[in-house]
Design a protein around this nucleic acid. Structure first.
Length: 562
RNA sequence: GCGCCUGUAGCUCAGGGGAUAGAGCAACGGACUUCUAAUCCGUGGGCCGCAGGUUCGAUUCCUGCCAGGCGCGCCA
């Protein structure tokens, strides 16, 4: 049943071979047969499937596309279409439009119901291990709005990949070894000293958010006995560790509230402690990938596609982020992942060239690392952008956002645009409990399905009756439109995963809900016509499954009543 | 100056060599003796930023230009 697609492309291919054998098409076309295009037309009047193959063969075959299409259709008609194809037409400039049979419709509904929560999944990825790294915010403050977008996109991408047969894991890289953490420690220490009444200056580049003071205050309340007995360096170290774990717990809590769970939080400091960075730099030097200049060690990244060489060890002996990050990527590959996806903010686009150059130098095949750059988010309130100033410490955190907007709406809004596009996040709309809000619209479709079953139960219609219903009575246009959409869930999930485009599945969910609402209006489910009622209950059962599955993959809840 | 992203309906955006370029919102007109009207149906609305190029065919690919956003450190 799932093989309808494959069986159509196979029969197109054999028809073309037949035409070549009988000299109706020249043999040159055979070289173009590796990938027969078969698409789902945007316009349902063009059938369930359409193939533009005749258009693409026209040049090599030196024949008009419509003529080629007619020949193929003739040949396919002679061979027979099988149980799922009803008719094939030549249309437009030379498309072949395939209309599927009533049996296809019935079997689709049955398939969805029997696969239940597994419907939508495929084994396309064949277990390939993919590591998706996202958010990876510095552990020096609360998560911001771009982090929230990254969390929604990354988490959905992991779910999409796992549904498509990949073994995908999520990872958060904790930059707990750099200068920024020292600055945080210094900032907390300054607050601590001030709380103790000392005249201690706040560092010029320190973190000014109110939370820094809160951390100092809480540390003092819990550990003042120990802190008082420490010298300044020891106290700074203690406060650094305290602040780090405080902020990591905070970030974890924010993400869990958002239903984003990381398989692993990977510590940069622990990586450094293994000596992986030193040994990598030594390896690079031995292989001639580096040179010394102005007292610093440079990586010849421009030999591997970067626009200039990069410092990896500064003249003061400390690493730039490039060295540990590269060691980190090698660590990921050493753990058996064959594909790495990094989701980064818009200010990191220069980063990709460096990492790609490093991995290329170490001999990893091209395409091992994919970098997805998310564009900016502008929060809109009452049609006006919400002003944020990082310098003044006035920025809206992920927690602020989730306080204002339900989790389901936030997740949906963050994935509903292409990752490469700037995102205007309309706060009023996300909160709205009206038809304009796409999240409510989709969830309402699911709630409506559930409501129909509550009604069925009230009318004492037994589940056993509709579970065995004869579905051949279905056939209303709004029913076939709905089933056609439901049938494409596996394709849509796979396409969204492969294109790294969660927005695709968000759009699919909205369209599916729209078709369900149309069906609901056009077709009364529970009526005096018992056979029809049972068949439609089976259809609604399948629709409920598809809605629930698509909502699960984007991490949005499927309420039973609203 | 260089790099990345964007430019499609009044607004927010899909689409991505091929059929009459789509959706939601807004505007206008309809539909509830009904399983949730938090819904549905219909109408109007487009030099797909501009100019070249490749092609049988370009809104889609390439080049240049224009406009907007964001970057360009021995910061991460």
């Amino acid at each position: 049943m799932e093989q309808v697609r494959a069986s159509i492309t196979r029969s197109i291919e054999s028809a073309i071979r037949q035409l070549v054998d009988s000299n109706k098409l020249c043999a040159d076309v055979l070289s173009n047969l590796s990938n027969i295009p078969l698409e789902v037309p945007k316009d349902p009047r063009h059938g369930e499937f359409a193939s533009p193959v005749a258009l693409s063969l026209a040049a090599v075959a030196r024949k008009a596309p419509r003529e080629i299409a007619s020949l193929i259709v003739e040949e396919m008609t002679a061979a027979g279409f099988g149980p799922y194809v009803d008719t094939v037409d030549v249309a437009g400039p030379g498309f072949m439009n395939f209309r599927l049979s009533a049996k296809w419709l019935v079997d689709t509904v049955d398939l969805i119901r029997s696969m239940d929560e597994e419907y939508g999944q495929t084994d396309y990825g064949r277990g390939e291990r993919v590591l998706v790294e996202f958010v990876s915010a510095n552990p020096v403050g609360p998560l911001n709005i771009v982090n929230a977008r990254a969390a929604a996109v990354g988490d959905t991408l992991v779910r999409l990949l796992n549904a498509s047969g990949y073994r995908a894991s999520s990872e958060f890289y904790v930059n707990d070894a750099g200068r920024q953490v020292s600055t945080l420690a210094e900032s907390v220490f300054a607050h601590y000293m001030q709380l103790k009444g000392a005249d201690y200056p706040f560092p010029e580049d320190g973190y000014r958010g109110a939370y820094v003071r809160d951390i100092a205050k809480q540390a003092m309340e819990e550990h003042d006995d120990r802190l008082s007995g420490m010298g300044p360096d020891e106290a700074r170290d203690f406060l650094r560790e305290y602040a780090l774990s405080y902020i990591l717990d905070w970030q974890k809590t924010s993400l869990e509230a958002y239903d984003v769970h990381f398989d692993r939080w990977f510590s940069e400091r622990k990586l450094r402690e293994t000596g992986a960075v030193e040994s990598m730099i030594r390896e690079m030097a031995e292989a001639g990938y580096t040179y010394e200049e102005d007292g610093a060690v440079w990586f010849r990244s421009s030999d591997y596609g970067d626009d200039k060489d990069r410092v990896i060890v500064k003249s003061d002996g400390l690493y730039t982020y490039v060295a540990p990050d590269l060691a980190y990527h090698r660590d990921k590959l050493g753990r058996g992942f064959t594909k790495l996806i990094d989701i980064l903010g818009p200010d990191h686009h220069g980063y990709e060239g460096r990492m790609q150059a490093g991995l290329q130098a170490f001999g990893y095949p091209e395409g091992t690392l994919e970098v997805l750059i998310l564009q900016l988010v502008t929060l809109m309130r009452d049609g006006e952008p919400v002003k944020m100033s990082k310098r003044a410490g006035e920025f809206i955190t992920m927690d602020d956002l989730l306080e204002e907007v339900p989790k389901d709406a936030a997740r949906y809004f963050f994935i509903m645009r292409n990752t490469s596009s700037h995102l205007d996040f309309d706060l009023n709309l996300a909160k709205a409990q009206t038809t304009d809000n796409p999240v409510w619209y989709i969830q309402y479709a699911h709630a409506r399905c559930c409501s129909i079953f509550r009604q069925a139960e009230a009318e004492r219609i037994q589940p056993e009756a509709w579970e065995r219903a004869d579905l051949s009575v279905l056939g209303h246009a709004s029913e076939t439109d709905l089933v056609r959409k439901m049938a494409s869930l596996p394709d849509e999930v796979l396409a969204a995963a492969c294109e790294r485009a969660p927005s695709r599945i968000a759009k699919y969910a909205l369209e599916l809900a729209g078709l369900f609402h149309s069906f609901y209006t056009e077709c009364r489910v529970i009526s005096d016509d018992e056979a029809m009622s049972l068949a439609r209950l089976a259809l609604v059962d399948a629709a409920r499954t598809v809605l629930r599955n698509v909502l699960r993959v984007i991490g949005v809840s499927a309420p039973e009543r609203m």
